[in-house]
Design a protein around this nucleic acid. Structure first.
Lengths: 137, 137
DNA sequence: AGAACGCTTGACGTTGACGTAAACGTAAAG
DNA sequence: CTTTACGTTTACGTCAACGTCAAGCGTTCT
């Protein structure tokens, strides 16, 4: 009856629409990521076929975006994930990259923590003021 | 000799150049923030004079940018800081805003933590591979 | 007086990250 | 066989966040 509706578990490839749906992206966005080389889905004729690798890369992309990285940087980051450098120089380079990103991330986390702390204290003040108002009524 | 070089402690206002320097921004950027209503420095004639309020707002802006917020959102956030709402409705609204931003921030923090964890494990693997290579030589 | 600073306002340019519209291919369903 | 659904490329548009001149004003140093 409805094709592709049953046994979604064994499914090992995805269409652009499925992934767009799953990650809340548009087709255009996904194609854009391909243009920038963030993903490179298989082509069956002209049609894009996405494998698990593409799916996980998309996952990393949206996470990177939530964190606030630009797409270029995201590419270098997710490229780090599935590079398997056998050579020593490459390994050192990768470790450098990791250190750099890590520093950046920790800076951001510190910023977030401070902001969260300030918001907590703001919330305290607000609720104090509010209960004062409620008491005065 | 050099004007404005001595006793920088008592200084309570700043020029655009000083703040640009201090925060690593350009004049254009600061003016842009003013155009968007993120700051509103005093005008002495045509010249901008920045007070401590503007300075702290700039501080919050750059932090917000590091976190990855768009300038619009940053404005609503820093506006929360120095609003003193006497009315109950405003207080509730502010509390809502705080909750929303807070949720967003915690999501980002979770993303960052996961990424940091993955990077840590990547680093482990890399260093293991590296010491293997070094041992084999 | 004149040159040099520092600051100002336009106003157009650029980059990143997509949106959007046009025009077309393909394959199953009615 | 046409419609419908889903997919494709090409190409121009848009919005945010500035960059980059150009031209001018007001002190201050010389």
């Amino acid at each position: 009856m409805i094709a592709g509706m049953t046994t979604p578990d064994i499914e090992t490839t995805w269409s652009i629409a499925q992934l767009a749906d799953e990650f809340g992206l548009t087709h255009r966005t996904i194609r854009h990521y391909e243009e920038l080389g963030l993903i490179s889905p298989e082509r069956r004729g002209t049609v894009r076929v996405f494998h698990r690798r593409d799916r996980t890369r998309l996952e990393l992309i949206v996470r990177g975006k939530r964190i606030g990285f630009p797409l270029d940087e995201i590419r270098t980051i997710i490229d780090m994930y599935d590079e398997t450098p056998g050579e020593s120089g490459q390994l050192v380079y990768l470790l450098d990259q990791i250190a750099a990103r890590r520093a950046e991330l920790e800076l951001r986390r510190a910023d977030i923590d401070r902001t969260l702390a300030e918001m907590a204290s703001m919330e305290q003040r607000c609720q104090a003021d509010l209960s004062k108002l409620r008491g005065a009524r």
